[in-house]
Computed example of a mutant assay.
Amino acid sequence: MAEANARARREAPAPDAVVRFIAGVDEAGRGPLAGPVAVAAVILDASKPRIRGLDDSKKLTHAKREALYEKIVDRALAYSIVMVMSDEIDRINIFQATMTGMSRALAGLNPCAHEALIDGNALPRDLPCAGRAIIGGDALEPAISAASILAKVTRDRWMVELDREHPGYGFAEHKGYGTPAHLAALQRLGPCPHHRRSFAPVKILVDQGVLF
């Protein structure tokens, strides 16, 4: 089941002003063998100082992402973060899980977005607002960059907690990606409940009856 976090602050518009809220949307964790895919939607607050240093989260250091995360949640007009867990990913596939997470994240915004700018080349069919897909948007649109950072930091923190619950896999280091160390741990320990059983390296072990 998805987990969501949302926060909003409202600013009173000037009389007769037409205010349109534009949300950036991005995900983190499509490729790993374990853990959720995290999706974030962010509406930046035009009345607040511009957040400097926003970029594709993959281009930023861990320390920079953490610092920007705090600025984003403090200055955003609204944000929503959704986690689509591994069992749902296995049930509907990673693409559909990502699309579902995007729709849920946008639905969690308050105020609602009038338009969504989504990183990538595909739009969910059930968006709650108008949408535009932008390839490489996480490096081009500040709101998408902000969403990328919120999704990445949230998921990384979740994987650190998962490492405490299931020691031995190295989740805190590789965050669930299929590194040699992770694959070796899978062979040694078998999959844990948070591994994606539809992903090939895990599926092979499941089919062989190697269970945690």
Rank of each mutant, 00 (worst) to 15 (best):
D55A: 15
D56V: 14
K59Y: 07
L60C: 06
T61R: 15
H62Q: 14
A63N: 12
A63K: 15
R65G: 03
R65L: 08
R65H: 08
A67S: 14
K71H: 12
K71E: 15
I72E: 04
V73M: 13
V73Y: 11
V73D: 13
D74T: 15
R75V: 06
L77D: 02
A78L: 04
A78M: 00
A78Q: 00
S80V: 01
I81S: 00
V82N: 02
V82P: 03
M83G: 05
M83P: 00
V84L: 14
S86T: 13
I89H: 00
D90G: 04
D90V: 05
D90T: 06
R91I: 05
T98S: 09
T98A: 03
M99D: 03
M102F: 08
R104D: 09
A105Q: 04
A107D: 06
L109S: 02
L109C: 03
N110I: 04
C112T: 12
C112K: 15
H114N: 15
E115Q: 14
A116M: 03
A116D: 00
L117M: 13
L117Y: 05
I118F: 08
I118R: 03
G120S: 06
A122G: 02
P124A: 13
P124R: 07
P124F: 12
R125N: 13
D126A: 11
D126P: 00
P128I: 07
P128E: 12
C129P: 03
C129Q: 04
C129W: 01
C129A: 10
A130G: 12
G131P: 07
G131R: 06
R132A: 08
R132G: 04
A133R: 05
I134Y: 10
I134P: 03
G136E: 09
G137I: 01
G137Y: 01
G137R: 00
D138Y: 08
E141N: 05
P142F: 10
P142N: 13
P142W: 11
I144P: 01
S145I: 08
A146E: 04
A147D: 04
S148D: 06
